[in-house]
Amino acid sequence: MTRPLNRRTVLRKLVAAPCVPLALATHVGATDYASAAEVFAAVDRLEAEVALRLRALAEATPGAKAFATSVLADHERQGRARERLRRRLGLAFSETARVEAGDLTSLEALRSAQEALVHAHAEGLPALGAAFAVDVMAGHLVELSRHLAVVDLWLEAEADRG
């Protein structure tokens, strides 16, 4: 049931601590994106890593195939939505993100990559600079947070199995 003390947990604990100035606390450990283009580039790269890991895990663990298929379909849809946002915001189109990652069938590594993808969305919202873009990316944040929660449940089930 206990989860490792990750960056989100640290951030949350700091934010909740009354002695830490709020403006400082909310930025501890968070990536400060300078522009929407930077956010989209980070999201493209992290999404590609999650996809690579999920495909490898689905190959190695047949029970993971349905989840992987569902997540990859969400990625496809979200990628198209980001392209539309890029167009609306006048940004350059994305290039295919190149990813190098080891230990592809590690569930822990998938969790870390998924968490990084969720953080990029959360930390990227203030840099988007347009309410319509925040709306769309917040919707993606919700879907990706759900994927992260499913991976957490998967890890807990693996731990229970010993």
Binding site: V15, A23, T26, H27, A122, V134, A138, R146, A149, V150
Partner: peptide
């Protein structure tokens, strides 16, 4: 969330949203 004007609150709200989704999923 898209109505929030300040960076600190927007960031906090985004992380709160992540928690709410976890609760819901569980």
């Amino acid at each position: 969330v898209s109505q929030i004007r300040t960076k600190d609150y927007l960031l906090s709200a985004a992380f709160i949203l992540v928690d709410e989704v976890r609760h819901m999923t569980v």
